[in-house]
Nucleic acid binder design. Structure first.
Lengths: 241, 241
DNA sequence: CCCTGAGATATGTGATCACACATCTCAATT
DNA sequence: AATTGAGATGTGTGATCACATATCTCAGGG
């Protein structure tokens, strides 16, 4: 009798189906939304409301939110209230310090990793895409390009575990950076400055200069941090008037 | 009419009651169990079984486990199976590298932080407690002493966010280190060696020598890592016989 | 005018049920 | 003897319900 031969599958069009769970997809969706700046720092979120948006029961959202709480991207601000991690100047500065350690380390390793021409091309392409996005005031694309550039570097220098931790840290600071869009001038300055610094990162990697690569990445983090801090200082000063 | 004056509470015995949720307590309990080595790396866990142990419904355990999954302390090894993160040599080495960056950084900062006599005393006391525990072969106490020593250092040099991330990393490597108890000789050697290295850490902190503090902490991590790797290599070689 | 407290509303939390499915056991088939 | 597949069992997953309580609104009393 003819039986199904799994080794034949390459000659068929059958392909593995998606086996992910609802909570996984909700989690990924929330994660992406946080990175894209669709949530404001400190914004209150509700499990039921999110469930309605996703068209699911509250159950999968609960699980996804529990994971985001563990990653400190969402926090419990009261006994029965959840919110996106707010901007707190001192906390944010501390996170930047940690990111400088880890992302600087990853950049160092990227600089000393075996060179690959396609890799350098990719870095240039990502950096150019930021500039192009800025030219047409497409801030979503600028954010995406910035993220792509950084993770291209870290992927080259980091192992999966390092990348994973760095991702978690981006998840925490993501809404904060993204909220800089509120001030178009500020946003433009941050990322315009970033493009120049990224060029230094690329140069350091080409030269295999570990220390310079770390310095450049750290400068990128620090300078955008300072701009954002000024932004929030000004914003809180205005709100007090 | 006499009304209740909350400012009087200091003269009464009334004290805030525990408002933590069940899932919080379950989470803390699981976390402590992982750090104390009550779970083996790769050990399968079941939500329902844990719920029965805790005397709750599966619900709070689900939430707690979701958080531990996000912290990579527990992982989904299959569609409907959960297990404690197993020992995988290359993964563990990567985590050690990350820990060297972060814990080394925290140690550096501890060395340059303003000196406090009570702090040095606490370090010595913790380190002595490890030695005393080893003398009577009390491995639980040795593990606890080691953890207390390290976090005393990190608390002095780290801010809450750094401490938090380091804690998460300990949660992942906790069961692995704790499992070294299976080989009493190995365990004794690791921690006996650790006590000597800790003395160097203390000395570096007293001397305010940042580089030496980082080196000593990194040596501690690396040497115990190498011992554990040998332990697992031997164990897997035996199991193949 | 300020404070109190009742009532309405919305929230996370926990329990319970139903379900799909991975895994194992073991007898029937080839 | 090896392989198949039915059945039992245990698992995470998702939906639903019940509940305590935080927050807000607003009328009543000081």
């Amino acid at each position: 009798m003819n039986t199904f031969d799994p080794t034949m599958k390459s000659s068929r069009t059958l392909v593995p189906v998606d086996v992910s769970t609802v909570q996984d997809r909700v989690y990924q969706s929330l994660r992406l939304g946080l990175l894209k700046g669709e949530f404001l720092p400190g914004e209150q979120v509700s499990i039921r409301a999110l469930a309605e948006v996703f068209g699911t029961s509250p159950m999968p959202v609960r699980e996804a939110v529990a994971r985001l709480i563990a990653e400190r991207a969402i926090e419990q601000s009261g006994p029965r209230t959840l919110r996106v991690a707010p901007y707190i100047a001192s906390d944010h500065e501390n996170y930047i310090r940690i990111r400088m350690q880890l992302e600087g380390y990853a950049a160092e390793r990227a600089a000393s990793a075996p060179k690959n021409p396609a890799f350098i091309d990719a870095l240039r392409r990502h950096n150019d895409s930021i500039q192009e996005a800025l030219d047409v005031r497409d801030f979503d694309a600028a954010l995406a390009g910035n993220q792509a550039f950084h993770f291209e570097v870290y992927r080259a220098g980091g192992y999966p575990q390092l990348l994973d931790i760095i991702s978690t840290l981006w998840l925490r600071t993501g809404p904060i950076v993204a909220s800089a869009r509120k001030d178009e001038g500020l946003f433009y300055r941050i990322f315009n400055n970033g493009v120049r610094i990224h060029a230094n990162v690329i140069e350091a990697i080409i030269q295999r200069d570990r220390a310079a690569a770390r310095r450049a990445i750290n400068l990128d983090l620090r300078s955008s941090h300072l701009s954002i801090r000024r932004f929030y200082q000004r914003a809180s000063a205005e709100s007090e008037v």
